[in-house]
């Protein structure tokens, strides 16, 4: 998976721009405009969060599909299990839940699975407009995703 350096730079540039404008509007006494900019700033946080998690989800899907394909060819795992799985899903790995796709790549006991579960649930809450904590530490999310992606890539 590509690293998120450019995404983080783009995000921080936009976020810092929001902060500058919010302060400018407050200083000018335009409190309502500042409040609207704060709302947009939170929306910007959410958009970047969803973007990062969506990219990670695609990465997991590609990796999981490859793992099943390799498995049924006898390169990894149990060939018969992977063959049955392949027949069930066809080439549409998204027929498996996101966490099941992750489970193909990572042992269930790992604490990163809990991190992923939390990220994915948060992504769903945001996507459905139900997240009340709209401020997101986006670069921190990106680094977390990069770290876990690296683990998945290296997993046997």
């Amino acid at each position: 998976m590509k690293r998120f350096d450019d995404v983080m730079y783009a995000y921080l540039t936009a976020d810092n721009g929001f902060a500058t404008e919010i302060e400018r509007e407050r200083e000018a006494g335009r409190i309502e405009i500042a409040a609207e900019l704060e709302r947009l700033r939170r929306l910007n946080d959410q958009a970047y969060f969803v973007l990062i998690v969506a990219e990670f989800e695609q990465y997991v899907s590609d990796l999981a599909l490859r793992r099943v394909e390799d498995g049924r060819r006898g390169q990894y795992g149990d060939r018969r299990v992977c063959s049955v799985l392949w027949q069930r899903i066809g080439e549409d790995i998204t027929k498996l839940s996101f966490l099941d796709r992750v489970a193909l790549l990572m042992d269930k006991g790992r604490f990163e699975l809990a991190e992923l579960n939390k990220l994915y649930r948060t992504r769903s809450e945001i996507a459905h407009g139900r997240a009340l904590s709209a401020v997101v530490d986006v670069p921190n999310t990106a680094r977390t995703v990069e770290r876990i992606a690296s683990l998945l890539q290296d997993a046997p």
């Binding site: 810092n16 902060a19 500058t20 919010i22 302060e23 700033r41 997101v136 530490d137």
Partner: peptide
Amino acid sequence: SGLWMIGGNGQVSAVADRLA
């Protein structure tokens, strides 16, 4: 600029004339 956040326990913005 936000107490309830994902990934931290509150954030603060520092703003200068053209930098933040």
